[in-house]
Design a protein around this nucleic acid. Structure first.
Lengths: 190, 190
DNA sequence: AGATTTCATTTAACATGTTAATCATATTCC
DNA sequence: GGAATATGATTAACATGTTAAATGAAATCT
């Protein structure tokens, strides 16, 4: 999975150190950008990691990574699903999904076949073994979720979900930088 | 950095497909868990990706990855910093940081030495070349940020930051699952 | 002082993220 | 109906995430 858990070995709150490092002391440099700690991607990353680290241990006991678990959960909700749609559903890129499906198939957790009318398309479904694994993992996962909801507050959690959705929506139609002629290739050599 | 951009090739909103795949149709399966789309880690991941994809192209033009940029930014705010503190500041794990610092040093973007009184500790600072690279990247980065703020709303953005911080705080002292005797090793063979 | 332990960093090994390229099958165009 | 094109999936290549182990140096113990 794609998230980090820095500072865990030191047991300290990463935010404290970050703020300290940024605090413009006498010898601090002039920053041409906003302070680091205000970075939205960083805030989202840290929040996600704060959540995920609680699930990782549980998943690990069952020999699953976060992405593998996302796939199983997505498969648990349908009879069969095409690979492309599964990629969207589990929010994975094609290459990652290909690798993971290969592994999950070898472990007997999923089954694959192809669409008769279009041999390019692959169909994926969960196996009985995969289903029982879901049932084995789900309880502790739900328990962790419940405790998080209790601590953070159900309403606050719902509001956060709403704000995150709204953020996605706000940026969905924002044009990406033009990817111009790449004439800045000089910088790449730095 | 660690985030994905699935469905980009199809240009569709991932949420639509996800919701569709989850929508319990007649043949849908009974789910022992909450619906996929309500997963908080997924929501944070998608939001983060919605933000990051706008920065990736700009960084790429300058030959930087998201993590390399986080490190340069962190270094830009201080004269020197120890490796451990840099890891916290840039929110990277030690191994990732080691690899990236090696690369950035080879590219002449940073400089390294060790603490005289404790040869275990490494000191890192940004080079003149690294500083000019920051100055080259910062404007477009700030412009993207400004446009995002305009679209989402400055107040809403501040509220989101606050809620993310609160989430981190809420979960900071939540006990991690006991990592018991690992007697469930059977499941790992699935 | 020498052995043990702790600490900072790096290396190793494997899984995933990310982009580009490849491969096979379908579709379209002429 | 065969060449060109488009599409779904995989593979390739490189960077990072993640955990465990190794390395080197400092602190502690006796």
């Amino acid at each position: 999975m794609p998230v980090n858990k820095p500072g865990a070995r030191n047991g300290a709150n990463p935010r404290k150190a970050a703020a300290r490092a940024e605090q413009a002391g006498p010898a601090a440099r002039e920053m041409p950008m906003r302070e680091f700690s205000r970075s939205l991607p960083m805030a989202l990353l840290r929040a996600r990691e704060a959540v995920m680290r609680h699930f990782r241990a549980s998943l690990r006991k069952h020999g699953l990574t976060e992405q593998q678990w996302r796939i199983l959960r997505a498969l648990g909700g349908v009879e069969t699903i095409e690979v492309t749609e599964l990629a969207r559903s589990a929010y994975l890129l094609g290459p990652s999904l290909s690798r993971i499906l290969r592994d999950l198939e070898q472990r007997g957790l999923i089954e694959r076949r192809s669409v008769k009318t279009d041999l390019r398309r692959g169909l994926v479904s969960i196996s009985a073994r995969g289903l029982s694994l879901i049932e084995a993992v789900a309880p502790s996962s739900e328990a962790i979720y419940a405790e998080m909801t209790r601590r953070y507050g159900a309403e606050r959690l719902a509001a956060l979900h709403e704000m995150l959705s709204a953020l996605e929506a706000s940026l969905a139609d924002m044009p990406l930088p033009g990817n111009g002629h790449l004439n800045d290739e000089d910088d790449a050599s730095l």
